[in-house]
Design a protein around this nucleic acid. Structure first.
Lengths: 189, 189
DNA sequence: CCTGATTTGGACCAGGCCGTCCAGCGAGGG
DNA sequence: CCCTCGCTGGACGGCCTGGTCCAAATCAGG
């Protein structure tokens, strides 16, 4: 199944995924064609199908995995050590800063809004992202000794998701801020 | 600007909007073509462009307005009288029941996830929906005499949005339930 | 340097899509 | 009764899209 890739090939493949992710963040998955990707990466049609044999679906899946990893990566290192109020506050600020900066061109929004529904495989990727993310948050809420730590962690995740997707749909930041703070209230009170 | 429509014409137009909304709920806006709509309504191409002169964009806007109205309609009459714990609870149950029933074929999810980004006009529709919805909720939180009623109302809205969109992306209901309850906690505590 | 596999270029195709166009149909008002 | 104006049918064109295919270039390694 796994095909042999030289270093050069792997680099090209990575370049394609990066560019595709970038395009999809701004124009959406539906608004991004293979030709757009081809033009943005200065590659040829055959290369796309060489590195992604199943074509578009394959590329979208790779982008979904890339973006899912990205979502968790930008929360490091804060996500690893949510044991004090101060560390939670720093994490909150980092998350908020990140999404305000990105605006409506946001990997998480794309994942939740578009890629999740595009195929069973991408749906699984999104599900896994939620699971690991929630587990990390739950470790933090448990460490804080709050009541119903699992529910609190999940509610925080839902608030971020809602805020991000509303940011995407309206361009307004306040939803994310208010939702996130409400979700964190049990921890900081 | 406003074109004359006979009763028959208005009915046909409505039939097209209804069917298009239905299709888009299940297949998404990107996955629904004008031909699909045509087939589902047993109409002809010329009718689509007769009732929606700007074509696809025009139809999507009409669908967005239709769905936005729908989102508020299913919350009636509970939404009008959120003055007691009991009425909030009934509203909560109605909302939850509705979205669990719809699963991932949900007007709100489509609006937030896809239609919001499709054009400035639809984006405005979504923004207005959020505004009026939030205002209704805020009337309720104020009536309940809770602290920071505006923030609480907004957080509830964000939680619903997040829960619905995660339901859409994963098929899991628990996010909506947990998020909604967390948002309502300040009111029911 | 030779050889086989990997990487690349780009022409090509079939199908689907949006939108245009024109010609009939039907209803309702004068 | 008829005549106008809205309603309907469906063929058609041009464009873009995902996907196939083959041949040339490049590279790795013996």
């Amino acid at each position: 199944m796994t095909r042999t890739l030289t270093a050069k090939g792997a680099a090209t493949r990575q370049r394609i995924v990066d560019a595709a992710a970038q395009l999809i963040r701004t124009a959406g998955a539906a608004g991004t064609s293979l030709d757009d990707v081809r033009a943005a990466t200065a590659t040829s049609k055959s290369q796309l199908f060489h590195y992604f044999p199943d074509g578009r679906a394959d590329l979208l899946l790779a982008v979904a995995e890339h973006e899912a990893a990205q979502v968790l990566a930008v929360q490091r290192p804060w996500l690893d050590d949510l044991t004090t109020r101060e560390s939670w506050r720093q994490w909150r600020d980092a998350v908020l800063r990140h999404y305000v900066e990105l605006g409506d061109r946001c990997p998480l929004g794309v994942l939740t809004a578009e890629l999740g529904k595009s195929s069973p495989e991408t749906r699984a990727v999104v599900g896994e992202l939620y699971d690991t993310w929630e587990a990390e948050l739950a470790r933090g809420t448990q460490a804080m000794g709050v009541e119903r730590p699992l529910e609190v962690a999940r509610a925080i995740l839902v608030a971020i998701q809602g805020g991000v997707v509303m940011l995407r749909a309206t361009g307004r930041v306040s939803y994310l801020e208010t939702g996130l703070d409400a979700g964190l209230a049990p921890l900081l009170r």
